[in-house]
Design a protein around this nucleic acid. Structure first.
Lengths: 146, 146
DNA sequence: CTAATCCCTCTAGCGACTGGAGGTTCAAGG
DNA sequence: CCTTGAACCTCCAGTCGCTAGAGGGATTAG
């Protein structure tokens, strides 16, 4: 290979932090590279591509397990892409769910801060709303990860 | 006020799981209750209120540190509510940021799945998009958390 | 050859829980 | 009163995806 990156160079190329790269290798997400005579990692263009794939997938919110599956699928070019498509659709559904949750949360938070009369804690709407769920719409449940 | 809940009853009342209630106590989020002669936790109406406050705050995405701060503030009824207001506004800003990120992610995921021709992996748009960030808008960074 | 910067492994920690093992207590039915 | 079984107890480990630090070795520019 002509290209030959240190871990730091790979990090700069991809925006993935050095310890994170080592972490990916440790959990088998990123192929282990050759080492220099002194034991330092030497990456090539394929590693760069692989890491960009992971980075992009993470940015889109895919879990590492999903990305591992997608990596595996992409190495079987003749297979139907249904499995990959399913993973992507699931991810989209997940994102839609989180968006809905966050919108409900935003609505509630907006009400909380809009009602603030900048007085004392005793009549604080922030606290009052938190103390009494009945004061709010109540549509904002389970917005996290579920 | 003579109310007297077991941890399971408290869990049912609030929707917070039993181990989570114990966890909250262990990190000082929830006051330690009295114990039965046999050593089991016996909660009262104040604990119920306290846990509902935490639960509602968590649903709105506040971190436990923020909720601890808000709890502390609510016990000083004469203080200005500025600090509480600031925490809520910060949380709102955070939610807006996450919404923006998730919307960008959704847009990209939609494109990925819309372009799927249900063929083979070799021409899979899901994989192609992940492999080449240049194929997408690229506005979707740092969206994560909630 | 030296100094600066990089890199190595290993371990532990984050937030906010969640689950299991292995043992004890409680409340209701007989 | 006794038995049963659900609920409870503590402690420990694991989840996810990193992130940080300690204490050293390697590489590279001048």
């Amino acid at each position: 290979m002509m290209s030959d990156y240190s871990i730091g160079a790979l990090s700069r190329q991809t925006g993935v932090k050095v310890p994170t790269i080592r972490y990916y290798e440790s959990i088998g997400m990123l192929d282990a590279p050759d080492r220099s005579p002194g034991g330092q990692r030497r990456y090539d263009a394929q590693h760069l591509e692989q890491l960009r794939f992971i980075r992009h997938g993470r940015d889109l919110g895919f879990g590492l397990d999903d990305l591992r599956a997608l990596q595996g699928l992409s190495r079987q070019p003749d297979r139907s892409c249904d499995a990959a498509d399913r993973i992507a659709r699931q991810q989209l559904a997940d994102v839609e769910r989180r968006l809905a949750g966050l919108r409900a949360v935003r609505k509630e938070l907006k009400r909380m801060v809009a009602q603030c009369s900048h007085g004392v804690m005793d009549e604080c709407h922030v606290i009052q709303t938190l103390s009494d769920h009945g004061l709010c719409d109540g549509d904002h449940a389970a917005h996290n990860k579920g």
